[in-house]
């Protein structure tokens, strides 16, 4: 515990940043937000799961959603790339924009949307196909490549970015399900990267992994920052503190507080946030 607490404190000071990138920019001017959500409600049948959430997602930093289980953070995450469409009773109101385009507008192609806003799930879910096919699938269906050489290149590039290349380069034809849990999750991240998304949504990507695998994923998230807008849902406050620069705290379907990660953890404005951070409930 004490170890992670130190880390949290370090993160706040910008000391334990694995990539060594400066967190100075927290104070610099940021550009237009990549995604913008305004007054978003999500209903499951008659039940309101998310109540009027507004938030901006920027490419420049990692945004973490934290909160007790059942607070709606995953629900909100799934609203950002319309994965909620797969649940028949789910309904989303309000406005979510990607580059100023309403993603729930009738003209929005949900397939294209999901290609632009990728997702990584709680439990690693590689396809029961070869490692190569797992990565190649996205570029193939979206027609991103013309030749086998291009495809090989994308597969290698994606696996390298996911930090998996060295481990699997000699067995690309093995089944993706044969990898260890952490490798599987990095494979899923590589799979998401392969279609060059603009935003990657991660739904508790480390909750099924051991600490070493978790550390690798966190390292990876930090490396990916800046290139992709990253939103991570996590139930671990330490993790939020380690990987994110912005944090939103969700409680009972409301977004209670949103701000610089360091502020949320050291100087929360809301009492509920404070109670959660200090472990009164969770």
């Amino acid at each position: 515990m004490s170890d992670s607490e130190t880390q949290a404190a370090d993160a706040e000071l910008g000391l334990s940043n694995p990539s060594g990138k400066s967190l100075e920019h927290e104070n610099v001017e940021v550009g237009e937000p990549k995604m913008r959500a305004r007054d978003v409600d999500v209903f499951y049948g008659d039940k309101k799961a998310i109540d009027s959430v507004s938030i901006d997602i920027h490419t420049e930093f990692v945004t973490a959603f934290i909160g007790p289980s059942g607070c709606g953070k995953s629900t909100f995450l799934r609203a950002l790339n319309r994965m909620n469409d797969t649940i028949p009773s789910a309904k989303v109101t309000g406005c979510i924009e990607l580059d100023g385009e309403d993603i729930y507008a009738s003209g929005m192609d949900v397939v294209q949307l999901r290609a632009r806003v990728g997702m990584v799930f709680q439990k690693p879910n590689p396809f029961p196909k070869s490692i190569y096919e797992n990565i190649a699938y996205g570029p193939k269906i979206h027609g991103l490549v013309e030749s086998k050489t291009d495809l090989d290149e994308i597969v290698e590039k994606s696996l390298r970015r996911a930090g998996l290349w060295e481990e699997v380069k000699d067995r690309l034809e093995d089944s993706g399900t044969a990898l260890s849990g952490g490798q599987q999750q990095r494979l899923c991240i590589a799979r998401a990267i392969a279609v060059e998304p603009e935003v990657i949504l991660m739904d508790e990507p480390c909750s099924a992994l051991d600490p070493i695998a978790t550390a690798k994923i966190e390292e990876l998230i930090d490396e990916l920052r800046g290139r992709y807008g990253i939103v991570i849902v996590t139930h671990s406050m330490q993790q939020a503190a380690r990987v994110s620069q912005r944090t939103a705290f969700f409680h009972l379907g409301n977004m209670v507080e949103y701000g610089h990660t360091s502020d949320i953890f050291t100087n929360p404005r809301e009492k509920r946030t404070q109670d959660y951070i200090t472990g009164r409930y969770g």
Binding site: T86, L113, R114, M119, F121, N125, F127, Y137, A192, V195
Partner: peptide
């Protein structure tokens, strides 16, 4: 066929028809 496979394919932007014919049906 586990729903996570469907989610995985949907999340990289496979259309529902592609999800079914590329992933669900073979499995």
């Amino acid at each position: 066929v586990p729903p996570s496979i469907r989610d995985g394919a949907l999340a990289i932007g496979a259309s529902p028809v592609q999800v079914v014919f590329h992933h669900v049906l073979p499995l």
